[in-house]
């Protein structure tokens, strides 16, 4: 690796350029579509850059005028935030005690593996009874009902990540606190959780992104702007009568913005989370 010929260096740079183009081109095109006039997008030959830049679609989708297409989009945006937020918080609340228990008492670990194994279940295998169950509880088309279902997708992941976080905190520190008379919850509050804060943040981000991405359950269990999430709203836009491809692209940009920003800013934490499961597991 130390002896690099100029040819090899050129080859590496060419490959890197190619990779960058492959990654960026579709994303840039999504953005360009969102700011191109409708006529440009159906022109032949296709114009790759708009004559006049048009941001009006963002205003259309983010409008708050009552009973408008924008209001419906904003409602689904808010639903997505609420569902993902509630499910994430609840998942952490379940994951912290469970992860700590497995980390400190490995003999109960098998139950966590059972929980993680549920990841194999295709959502279609649970959808019908869940549909009846939510219906029975009056939780269909309800953000909390959807969050409850998402909780079961997020909790196994967050528990697993939290467990690997707790594993790296020496028991001795906790033991010292307990000898000083602190109870279990006090020990967590003072010692364990502050030390596990980075893992907790990573888990929360993951959970949020997972919930933000979910489509199948949202498609089945929500029906209107009281609970419909962004992914369903976008699928509706893409499948229905939106003659302007730019508007679909704009909705896509807006839906992608939160996870993409999180991804860019929190890169390091996310990658460590992605790999810690893999490398250690």
């Amino acid at each position: 690796m130390e002896r690099k010929s100029p040819l090899f260096s050129i080859f590496i740079h060419a490959c890197a350029l190619l990779l960058a183009v492959v990654i960026l081109a579709p994303l840039v095109w999504l953005f360009v579509m969102s700011i191109s006039p409708a006529a440009d997008l159906t022109a032949k030959p296709l114009s790759w850059w708009p004559q006049t830049v048009d941001f009006s679609r963002y205003a259309v989708l983010l409008s708050s005028v009552e009973n408008s297409a924008g209001a419906a989009f904003v409602a689904s945006l808010i639903n997505s935030i609420v569902v993902a937020g509630v499910a994430t918080l609840a998942a952490l609340a379940l994951a912290i005690p469970a992860a700590w228990a497995v980390s400190r008492t490995p003999s109960v670990g098998w139950s966590l593996y059972m929980v993680i194994a549920t990841y194999m279940l295709p959502p279609v295998a649970l959808a019908v009874p869940l549909y009846f169950g939510l219906s029975h509880l009056g939780l269909l088309n309800n953000v909390f009902g959807l969050a409850l279902v998402y909780l079961t997708i997020l909790a196994p992941f967050t528990t697993w990540l939290m467990k690997s976080g707790f594993d790296s905190i020496p028991r001795e520190i906790e033991a010292a606190a307990m000898i000083d008379g602190a109870g279990l919850f006090a020990t967590w509050r003072i010692i364990t959780l502050p030390l596990a804060a980075p893992v907790m943040a990573t888990s929360a981000l993951f959970a949020f992104l997972l919930a933000w991405d979910e489509f199948f359950y949202a498609l089945l269990f929500t029906s209107d702007l009281r609970a419909k999430t962004l992914t369903v709203a976008i699928a509706d836009l893409a499948g229905g009568r939106v003659s302007d491809y730019g508007l679909i692209a704009t909705a896509g940009v807006l839906a992608a913005l939160p996870p993409v920003v999180i991804g860019l800013v929190m890169q390091r934490a996310l990658i460590s989370g992605l790999t810690s499961g893999g490398v250690k597991g």
Partner: peptide, 28 residues
């Protein structure tokens, strides 16, 4: 470039599908 790699992963699946459907459009 490493930073860019996270972008497709972060893009919601439905948005990804919509984007590619537009890219594959037979007429435009």
């Amino acid at each position: 470039l490493r930073g860019l790699m996270i972008l497709p992963w972060a893009l919601p699946t439905v948005v990804n599908a919509t984007l590619w459907r537009l890219i594959y459009n037979p007429e435009y």
